[in-house]
């Protein structure tokens, strides 16, 4: 079974984001970019499936700017076998919307015929949480979202989902799309030998045109603003003081 893993290049989670002066979005010029952390978890899961003998090949896909090549090299250094880069924009500030991404992925799935797509549940930049679901609709495949545990067994996959108030376990038919949550696994570091090998692994470069997809945005960003600053907290000296303060604030 082949596993397809879409990976997005996003602003690094450690970077303090800054809104551009004109409010058109977040400033991405000269800031550290990394693989979306949820996608890293998806890559890790795919590699584990391969190590467990349940997958034969792991293909990473990234859609965005030319620099997404670095994100794909990271996936290759973690252990993916090959990569597909779809260059869909020149400007790092151009965000390709979930529907366009899902359409391109759907076309790639038809070409590559994977038995499983493992994606992050959302990208930490705009938190859309939509691509996996849209891909499922476009392909007519089953889906298991917010996975904290995945067990592939022949024609079925058992997916434990993190839902409000607890865990839900569902069984989906293969081929399927699984979007992964934070607790599924802890992604590995790229090993030094794999970093050195990554360059030699195949990386195909494509365009949306190759898949007949129009990536023109459907959404208009009206305004981006920083969240309001939070008021400073206070330190309390004892539990009694804490309880007193909470009572004062009407919280208990």
């Amino acid at each position: 079974m082949k596993v397809l893993v879409p990976v997005k290049r996003v602003i690094d989670y450690n970077v303090k984001v800054r809104v551009k002066a004109d409010g058109s979005g977040v400033d991405l010029a000269n800031v550290k970019m990394s693989m979306n952390p949820f996608d890293e978890i998806a890559v890790e899961e795919a590699i584990r499936l391969k190590e467990a003998g349940k997958a034969t090949e792991v293909v990473a896909v990234s859609i965005g700017v030319k620099q997404n090549q670095e994100t794909l090299r990271t996936a290759l250094a973690m252990g993916a076998d090959r990569a597909i880069l779809v260059v869909a924009a020149d400007d790092v500030h151009t965000d390709i919307e979930p529907l366009a991404v899902a359409k391109i992925l759907a076309a790639i799935v038809k070409e590559e015929e994977p038995g499983l797509v493992l994606a992050g549940k959302q990208a930490i930049d705009n938190d859309m949480n939509a691509t996996g679901q849209m891909l499922s609709a476009l392909l007519g495949w089953s889906q298991g979202t917010f996975a904290s545990e995945v067990d592939i067994d022949g024609d079925n996959a058992k997916v434990t989902r993190e839902v409000d108030g607890g865990l839900q376990t569902i069984t989906v038919k293969m081929p399927t799309i699984i979007t992964v949550d934070l607790r599924l696994n802890e992604p590995r570091y790229a090993s030094l030998p794999n970093i050195m090998k990554a360059k030699r692994k195949p990386l195909d470069e494509k365009t949306p045109g190759d898949y007949g997809v129009d990536v023109t945005p459907r959404l208009t960003v009206v305004k981006t603003e920083e969240p309001a600053a939070r008021a400073a907290g206070i330190k309390v000296g004892s539990v009694d003081e804490l309880v007193a303060k909470l009572k004062e604030a009407g919280a208990v």
């Binding site: 090299r73 990271t74 570091y189 790229a190 030094l192 970093i195 050195m196 990554a198 360059k199």
Partner: peptide
Amino acid sequence: SEEQEMIVSTVRSFV
């Protein structure tokens, strides 16, 4: 190079 970038980021996150 890409390899060097990855070496740096791997060692950085290890640390």
